[in-house]
Amino acid sequence: MKSFITVIGKDTVGIIAGLSAILAQRNVNILDINQTVMDEMFTMIMMVDTSSLTCSFSELSTLLSDYGKGAGLSVRMQREEIFNTMHRI
């Protein structure tokens, strides 16, 4: 099962390191990372494999979003189907 983690906010040191640590501890493999700066907003999109998660999806989701709040970022994780469904026929 693949999911996308989207990080939007002001660029600061250690965002990827912080998130990677949370993911590694829960056995989530990072498959791809794409980052851009749009309108001075840092946007990072991470594709991850959540099929061997060692906690529940919602626990990880909360952890990531709480981490984001601490760093002034919006962080969310969503299963890839929502994007495939909307943008691919």
């Binding site: 946007t43 999109i45 890839e80 994007f83 909307m86 691919r88």
Partner: peptide, 14 residues
Amino acid sequence: MSMIRPDEILETIE
């Protein structure tokens, strides 16, 4: 299926 592009992900989130 082609890879979902970042702008498509951001469109959905917006």
